[in-house]
Simulated assay, not measured.
Amino acid sequence: MFALPAFAADEFIDKAAAGRMFEVDSSKIAEGKIQNRSVKDFAQKMIDDHGAANAKLETIAGKQKLKVPTELNAKHRSDLEALQTAKDPIDKSYVQMQRDAHADAVKLFESYAKDGDNAQLKTFAQETVPTLKMHQEMIEKIASTTHDTSSTSSTTPAVTTTDTANPAAPAPGANSFTEDQAKSRIQDAGFSEVSALTKDDQGIWRGQATKDGKKIAVALDYQGNVVAGTN
């Protein structure tokens, strides 16, 4: 029986360093554009915690003459550019980016902690996993609460009534919500019997739901805005 190959050190360093640079850089950009206090506090924590972890990773790599990347990949650069050019506030976009980044980071560090081929890096990964999971729990909790308060924390609030129009939402954009997540968010916004959800070519989830006894059209954009009465 053949043993599975160990997780290579250089691959781990590349992915870990790039991911953590992105989390710090995106948080620095977002800090001045964030409106929600809990999101702003999270951004500052990312700058502090990941900055320290990056320094530790560089020290370990330097002692073993392993190269640490100094530039982000194309996707990360694109995400940073989107944050830089977005109109304030960017709370929801930033939160979703951090949710995705931490899901990837936890998976990466857990994999290397289990199957890594470098003892020092493996220990580093093992010691870092609890912090990453704590960050992940924090951002998931923020995500579950901020979309409910969007009407008071955003200059372009989500619409939850059928007699109010909001030209800013639903906003087109790359939507990372799965169908189940979209359904859950719409239900959290006060709707029931959510059905017939489909994602259109603008990245907007559209379907039918019931509110106040009436069957109406609903939409969910990539920012998490839930809009009623849209076709």
Rank of each mutant, 00 (worst) to 15 (best):
M46D: 02
K92M: 15
G203S: 06
S78R: 14
S27M: 04
K199N: 05
V194Q: 01
A18E: 13
T155A: 08
A113P: 08
F7G: 02
D148V: 11
Q35C: 15
L80I: 13
T161M: 07
E137K: 14
Q64F: 10
K141L: 13
A158T: 08
A189M: 00
S192N: 13
R206W: 09
K211G: 04
A18L: 12
D41P: 02
K141C: 03
V68A: 00
S78L: 09
A43S: 12
H76F: 09
Q120V: 11
K215S: 10
I90W: 05
T146Q: 15
S27C: 04
R37T: 15
G62Q: 06
H147E: 11
L220I: 00
S27A: 13
E110H: 07
L121M: 03
V194C: 03
D100K: 14
H147W: 10
D104P: 01
R185D: 12
D100S: 12
N231F: 12
E71K: 15
A125M: 04
H50T: 04
L72N: 03
Q136I: 05
Q35E: 07
G62E: 07
S26L: 03
K215R: 12
K75R: 10
T156Y: 09
E71D: 09
T123A: 11
D104A: 14
E71V: 14
A182Y: 04
N175V: 04
L57G: 01
Q84M: 10
K33F: 00
V218Y: 04
H135F: 11
S111E: 15
D88H: 15
Q136A: 05
A43R: 06
T164N: 15
V129D: 00
E31N: 09
Q202V: 01
A105I: 01
N118A: 13
A103I: 14
K15C: 01
K211E: 08
D25I: 09
P172L: 03
E140C: 03
Q35I: 11
T152H: 08
A101S: 14
V129I: 01
K65G: 07
M138K: 12
Q223S: 09
M1K: 10
S153C: 07
T146G: 03
T85D: 02
Q96P: 06
E58G: 05
L83I: 01
F12G: 00
A55M: 08
M138L: 12
D188G: 11
R20K: 13
M97S: 05
K75Q: 13
M97C: 03
V106C: 01
T70M: 10
A6W: 06
L57M: 00
K67M: 06
P157H: 01
H102S: 03
D221L: 05
L4S: 10
Q44H: 13
D25R: 10
A169H: 13
V24M: 04
S38L: 11
F177W: 07
A217I: 02
A61G: 01
D188W: 11
A82D: 12
D180F: 07
K199W: 03
T198Q: 15
K214C: 06
A125S: 10
N36F: 14
D48Q: 09
V39H: 01
E137M: 07
Q84K: 13
L80F: 06
T70N: 12
D91I: 03
E71R: 08
D100L: 14
E23N: 07
A17M: 05
M21C: 00
R206H: 09
A171V: 02
